[in-house]
């Protein structure tokens, strides 16, 4: 049986890497003695399938993990109680907010997620930008049809147009150190990084705190979350700070 789990990554734990988070999960699953299915072969691993990697330093309210339970013992697992069992076995800041069985044959998270919503703080190298400046820059980006940028990938310069990935940008208001944007950025065929968007907005601006708020997949033409949650992590922020 395959189970999809949704969790947050908030506060100081944001400085752990994707790989370290994977290892935290393996330990947590062993600590609560969840009957996870194991891979075959010379060095068996628990069968976990992570979604899109989150950059080290970014927070998230919408991380996903698919895990395969042991065929026999997995049937006895009470999925409704799973979030409350898992959260205490995970580091502060990682809270499991939902868990549900997914039907066999469900495509992988990496394959179905097409965009993510982000809250991105824009901060300035010299002084904080104003709401109007950032708003104007956002409108300028949305108004252009092409934003050609060059980045280094595996030691080679790659030039491409990032405009198709910018699906929405609005100013949410001031934050402690800058101006916060609400954005939706595409993930396919490659994921647009928040820092790339901020660089396109204007010189001398950098990303500050960044938080992924949603991952989206398309289902029959409608935008939908891989696993919705009614109230996202009520106490997560208090625990994590």
């Amino acid at each position: 049986m395959r189970v999809r789990v949704r969790f947050s990554k908030l506060g100081k734990v944001r400085f752990t890497s994707h790989r370290d988070v994977a290892r935290m999960w393996e330990r947590a699953l062993r600590r609560i003695e969840l009957p996870v299915a194991w891979s075959e072969g010379f060095s068996p691993r628990p069968r976990l399938h992570f979604g899109l990697a989150l950059s080290t330093g970014h927070e998230s309210e919408a991380e996903y993990l698919d895990l395969d339970l042991d065929e026999a013992a997995g049937l006895d697992v009470d999925l409704a109680a799973l979030p409350a069992r898992l959260t205490p076995a995970l580091p502060v800041g990682i809270d499991v907010v939902a868990a549900a069985a997914i039907p066999p044959g469900t495509p992988s998270l990496q394959a179905v997620v097409t965009s993510c919503s982000w809250r991105i703080e824009v901060v300035g190298d010299d002084g904080r930008p104003t709401e109007a400046e950032v708003g104007a820059a956002a409108e300028r980006v949305l108004a252009t049809s092409e934003i050609v940028t060059t980045r280094t990938r595996k030691g080679q310069d790659v030039t491409d147009d990032i405009r198709p990935y910018v699906l929405a940008v609005t100013v949410a208001g001031p934050s402690t150190a800058g101006i916060e944007l609400e954005c939706e950025l595409g993930t396919s065929p490659r994921g647009l990084r928040p820092a790339e968007l901020v660089a396109a907005l204007g010189d001398g601006w950098r990303e500050g705190r960044v938080r992924r708020t949603h991952q989206w997949m398309q289902l029959d033409g409608a935008r939908q979350e891989p696993l919705p949650v009614a109230t996202p992590a009520p106490h997560a922020e208090a625990r994590a700070s």
Partner: peptide
């Protein structure tokens, strides 16, 4: 120790 830490 294995149970408490989750190490393998």
């Amino acid at each position: 120790g294995l149970r408490r830490t989750g190490y393998d």
